[in-house]
């Protein structure tokens, strides 16, 4: 029987994949992909809570909807930043973004 913990584990797996993706990818867009994975892991958790806890049956879904919408907005802004970055540095390698090192 599938319980809440199975869904939570899937969410955790997605989350960790996203974190590792953010840490290892040198391409700025790869980092963005990691962020999307992290948000999805959180969403799986929210919807699973919505299903398994009657008190949150609507709240969890509404939160996940808001997360999806915000993720879309975040992706748009992040890509605009990446494009700008590419225009200034002729690359999307995040390691080259070190001007603010101080």
């Amino acid at each position: 029987m599938i319980g809440l913990e199975h869904y939570l584990f899937l969410g955790a797996l997605l989350f960790v994949c996203g974190v590792v993706c953010m840490a290892t990818k040198r391409n700025a867009i790869g980092v963005l992909i990691g962020v999307e994975l992290v948000l999805n892991g959180a969403n799986v958790n929210l919807v699973a809570f919505a299903r398994y806890n009657p008190a949150f049956e609507i709240e969890g879904m509404i939160f996940s909807l808001l997360v999806i919408v915000l993720a879309a907005a975040e992706a748009a802004v992040a890509l605009a930043i990446v494009l700008n970055f590419y225009n200034n540095h002729s690359t999307v390698d995040v390691d080259s973004a070190e001007e603010l090192r101080g």
Binding site: Y7, L10, E36, N43, V44, V47, A48, A50, R51, M61, S64, L65, I68, V69, A71, A72
Partner: peptide, 19 residues
Amino acid sequence: GIFFLLGADLVGAIQLLVY
């Protein structure tokens, strides 16, 4: 697909549409 499995078909469809 997981969202559909959890009965949250609206969230699943929005996920497909937006993402």
